Amino acid sequence: MKWTFLLIMICSSSSLYAQEMTELSIIKQQVKSKRISSYDRSGDNHDNLQHIKHGEKRVIFDVKGTGIIQHIWITMGPEPAILSRNDIIIRMYWDGQAYPSVESPIGPFFGQGWNESYLFTSAPLAATPTDGMGLVSYFAMPFEKGGRIEIENQSGREINTLYFYVDYVEMKQLPLHAGRFHAWYNKQLTGPVDSVENEHWMFGPGKPNKTGKDNYLIADIKGKGHFVGVNYYVHSPTPYWYGEGDDMIFVDDNVLNGTGTEDYFNTSWGAPQAPYATPYFGYARVNNDIGFLGRTHLYRFNIADPIYFDSLFRFTIEHGSMNVLTLDLASVAYWYQDKASPVPAIPDAAARKPQPMIGPSEIHRWRNEWRKSKGNNPTLWGN
Score class of each variant (00 low, 15 high):
Met133Gly: 09
Phe164Arg: 01
Asn153Gly: 08
Asn153Met: 05
Met171Arg: 13
Arg180Met: 03
Glu150Thr: 05
Ser155Asp: 06
Trp114Met: 01
Gly179Phe: 01
Arg157Gln: 12
Glu103Leu: 07
Asn160Met: 07
Pro142Leu: 04
Glu197Thr: 14
Glu152Pro: 03
Glu197Lys: 13
Ser155Tyr: 04
Ala123Gly: 05
Phe110Ala: 00
Trp184Arg: 05
Ser122Cys: 14
Arg148Asp: 02
Ala140Phe: 05
Asn160Lys: 09
Leu125Asn: 04
Leu174Ile: 05
Trp114Glu: 01
Val166Cys: 15
Val136Ala: 03
Val196Ile: 15
Val102Met: 14
Gly107Trp: 02
Ala140Asp: 02
Pro129Thr: 10
Leu176Pro: 06
Ser195His: 13
Lys172Ser: 13
Phe109Val: 04
Gly111Gln: 04
Pro105Gln: 07
Tyr99Thr: 11
Glu116Gln: 09
Gly146Glu: 12
Pro175Ala: 10
Tyr165Ser: 13
Met171Lys: 12
Pro108His: 06
Gln173Val: 08
Ile149Pro: 00
Tyr99Arg: 09
Phe139Met: 10
Gly156Phe: 09
Met171Ala: 11
Pro105Ala: 11
Gly113Val: 02
Ala127Ser: 14
Glu150Leu: 08
Tyr138Trp: 11
His177Trp: 07
Ser117Asn: 14
Gln112Lys: 10
Trp114Gly: 00
Glu144Arg: 07
Arg157Met: 13
Glu116Cys: 05
Glu158His: 06
Leu119Phe: 09
Pro175Glu: 05
Ile159Tyr: 05
Tyr168Cys: 07
Tyr138Asp: 00
Gly156Glu: 09
Lys145Ser: 10
Gly179Met: 03
Leu174Arg: 11
Tyr99Phe: 15
Tyr165Gly: 12
Tyr185Asn: 03
Ser137Leu: 01
Gly191Trp: 12
Thr128Lys: 14
Pro129Ser: 12
Thr121Pro: 03
Leu135Trp: 03
Ala140Glu: 04
Leu125Asp: 02
Gly147Glu: 04
Thr128Pro: 07
Pro124Leu: 07
Glu150His: 05
Ser104Gln: 05
Gly179Gln: 03
Pro192Leu: 12
Gly191Gln: 14
Pro192Asp: 11
Phe143Cys: 04
Tyr118Thr: 03
Leu189Ala: 03
Pro100Gly: 06
Ser104Gly: 10
Glu170Lys: 11
Gly147Leu: 09
Val102Ile: 15
Leu125Gly: 02
Phe120Leu: 13
Tyr185Pro: 02
Asn186His: 12
Val102His: 03
Asp194Val: 11
Val193Ile: 15
His182Arg: 13
Ser122Glu: 04
Tyr185Val: 07
Val102Tyr: 04
Thr121Leu: 13
Pro105Ser: 11
Asp131Asn: 15
Ala183Cys: 12
Pro192Glu: 10
Thr121Trp: 08
Pro129Lys: 12
Arg180Thr: 03
Ser101Lys: 12
Glu144Met: 11
Gln173Thr: 11
Gln97Gly: 05
Asp194Pro: 01
Arg148Val: 07
Gly107Ala: 08
Lys145Thr: 08
